[in-house]
């Protein structure tokens, strides 16, 4: 049709200026049905949830909620279970994120080669993404089962992996890496494919070997994508619940009780809504602080 006819007047570049009131009204008509539910169900509850952190809200129907200021946070700081859970959560989130990244980078580099079998490997890579977390958790229970599991019979060990104080957390971490590899691998692979071939050709002319090309071309080129996906992975891992709940319920003795499992128990087993909300807010603060430092360092190094 007539693309040229529209060229002289690129409208709507500025909703207020060029669009005129009519266009603005249309925008509101379109936005409203969508904005209302987003405000009602997403923004609203979140603000409400943050607000609850400063109250003594409880599950009981007759409980009258009152404002308590920072009391919940004070209680948290004095709660050993909270610190134990934060420790487990940080070990879990950092380890899983790092291992996920290293494993996925290796896999993405392999998938980017023209190797036989990569088609099948790609399919396998994506499968965990599609599976319900509950099924992933149950599946790994079968894998780790002390009698009917494959790990003991392969290694010749006799360990009750998920009930063992030493082994429960590492066992859960392996599952975490397995289940989070698809997203990371796919994003890194897509990133690898955007690196211009000319860079490698130029590197080869200068006599750079495989390692040298990897360190001087691949990694710097991937950097923005690496920073983004590791940040996302970290946030997702900190907020993980279902996988670990199904696998261990936080046991044995709290060895795998991630912060979200702790929060869930406080809120929906014991009914301390305010306390659990304060825990949620604390986690946001910790995550934002850690991400802030990480992103700031990455930015500084990049420039």
């Amino acid at each position: 049709m007539t693309a040229t006819a529209t060229k002289p007047a690129p409208p709507a570049r500025n909703a207020r200026g060029a669009g005129g009131p009519r266009r603005n009204r249309e925008m509101w008509v379109l936005m409203l049905p969508a904005l209302v539910p987003v405000l009602l169900f997403s923004v609203g509850p979140l603000l409400y949830g943050i607000g609850l952190a400063f109250t003594d809200a409880e599950s009981g129907k007759n409980h009258v909620t009152g404002f308590v200021g920072l009391e919940n946070f004070g209680d948290l700081l004095a709660d050993d279970t909270f610190w134990a859970s934060m420790r487990v959560g940080l070990i879990w989130a950092v380890t899983v994120t790092v291992l996920q990244f290293l494993a996925s980078l290796g896999l993405a580099l392999l998938l980017n080669q023209k190797l036989w079998l990569t088609g099948l490997a790609r399919v396998l890579t994506v499968v965990p993404w599609a599976m319900p977390p509950v099924v992933i958790g149950l599946m790994w229970r079968l894998v780790y089962h002390p009698d009917a599991g494959i790990v003991n019979s392969t290694l010749g060990t006799d360990i009750n992996w998920l009930a063992d104080f030493t082994w429960a957390l590492p066992a859960v971490i392996v599952m975490g890496v397995w289940s989070g590899m698809p997203q990371t691998t796919i994003v890194l692979l897509a990133g690898l494919q955007t690196i211009p071939k000319e860079l490698y050709e130029a590197g080869e002319m200068d006599g750079a070997g495989t390692w040298r090309k990897f360190w001087s071309i691949t990694l710097p080129q991937l950097r923005p994508i690496i920073v983004t996906i590791t940040s996302l992975d970290f946030v997702w891992n900190v907020n993980q619940f279902s996988l670990v709940y199904v696998l261990t319920q936080g046991g044995p003795g709290g060895q795998t009780r991630l912060p979200m499992l702790f929060a869930y128990e406080e809120a929906f087993r014991y009914g301390f809504f305010g306390y659990a909300a304060a825990l949620g807010v604390s986690i946001v603060i910790v995550v934002l602080a850690l991400l802030g430092v990480y992103l700031w360092r990455q930015l500084r190094e990049a420039s």
Binding site: P45, L46, G49, V235, W236, N239, F241, L279, G280
Partner: peptide, 17 residues
């Protein structure tokens, strides 16, 4: 931003409502 917030901050208020 909504990705960063843990579910607990959303589910408690929704549950109450």
């Amino acid at each position: 931003v909504s990705q960063v917030f843990p579910f607990i901050l959303i589910i408690i208020p929704l549950f109450m409502v």
